[in-house]
Design a protein around this nucleic acid. Structure first.
Lengths: 222, 222
DNA sequence: TAGGTAAACTGCACCGAGTAGTTTACATTT
DNA sequence: AAATGTAAACTACTCGGTGCAGTTTACCTA
């Protein structure tokens, strides 16, 4: 299996769930997780408007009433899903600036971990779910995609420090970080999100990371 | 002055058309344009699923029956809107490679015209309308976003020629074009589309174009 | 220029399907 | 037996789409 994050939530296989969590789960809690898993599938597949509570309940093999016992409304359930998915990415790859290590090495690590994040099925699911709604719901847009910009924050700080340290040309650190991530996402995020393009292979990922660092340093190295 | 019956079928800009020709339009044609304009607003505002044919008809100040006289179904109407918007971007900025002009100048032109395109309210409308649906409809995704990739094609060819000419380092031209556009869109497209970020001012646009070219040439100039 | 005809528009009622959310009455678990 | 979960029916909608009777418009002819 793939997902190493919050294994409980993303596991669709209830038997596995039960066996791995011992007998700790009461039936009520199990149902709750079934509902969350089914809701995630339903929303992912049909979007917020397209999703139906009946279909969702059937998916979870649970009475619709039970769904409403756990979540008072469709919207609240939706926000729970989004929140939950968001939380699983709190572990923002906090890149630390090391004055002694080579810039290329540090940047390559940043690029690789960003690609790693973009590669995770989980992360793309979150985006597929939210982005459609974000366009028409600014509130959700900011609350959610703030999270997405979190490791951008980290990179921005890193760049700023490297500039202060005289190892990068002085420039707008925020803008530079945007460029760095833009280079990556142009190949490893947007095309996969909107067209159904396959995600880059391991070799392609390496090329993307290498070339991003190469280009970035060609421009900014002091 | 009389107008041929079907000369108006494909519309460029409905509002402009209406105000400039006014009397020349037969009532049927005017209604048709009213419907298209209203549909554009409705879809833009609520998306495909959220849009309602009743609300749309009211917006167009037209009987719902009339809507269905012109367009047999909601889906067909939607595709008409998308097609119409697409057609208004047929003028793909076809960048031509000039062996004698400086690379920076030519690239700067490409960057500027790309930003120009991304800046147009029209173009962002098209994307806002389609992208949400593209995620769940691969068919629409390819048919529509092919268009978006058209000027990318142009750039890719340009880069290829410059490489053959020995003025750029030999590399994957398609990948390089993707990088070039990624640099631009990271600042002037995606943030505006999903968050409601304001579009860059004229000065900011210049900075983006300058810096994109700078970075690209730092990496690829032979 | 007047008049007639065909086509288009209107407004409304209506259909069947589906929606979120609630209630009721029964079954299972503990 | 008390508590919780259950299915199915029910409410009060909204939706896309249709049928139809009556009105308006466009255009051709006499």
């Amino acid at each position: 299996m793939k997902s190493k994050l919050n294994s409980v939530v993303f596991t669709h296989d209830s038997i596995l769930l039960l066996s791995s969590m011992e007998k700790a789960l009461t039936l009520t809690e199990k149902k709750r997780l079934d509902i969350l898993a089914a809701a995630q599938d339903e929303f992912k597949e049909k979007g917020f408007l397209g999703a139906s509570m009946d279909s969702l309940a059937k998916r979870a093999e649970v009475s619709k009433r039970t769904v409403y016992n756990h979540f008072p409304s469709k919207e609240i359930l939706f926000h729970n899903i989004v929140k939950e998915l968001c939380d699983s990415f709190r572990q923002a790859a906090n890149i630390q600036y090391h004055p002694n290590k080579p810039l290329g090495e540090q940047l390559h690590f940043a690029a690789t971990s960003e690609i790693q994040l973009l590669a995770s099925e989980c992360f793309r699911d979150l985006n597929r779910i939210t982005i459609s709604e974000c366009i028409r719901s600014p509130e959700l847009a900011s609350s959610t995609l703030d999270h997405l910009g979190q490791q951008k924050e980290g990179l921005h700080v890193w760049i700023h420090e490297a500039m202060k340290d005289g190892r990068l040309k002085t420039a707008d650190a925020h803008f530079a970080a945007q460029q760095f991530l833009g280079l990556i996402k142009a190949s490893a995020f947007w095309p996969q999100l909107f067209m159904n393009q396959a995600f880059p292979s391991a070799e392609q990922q390496k090329i993307i990371a290498d070339d991003t660092v190469l280009m970035f340093l060609a421009r900014y190295k002091a």
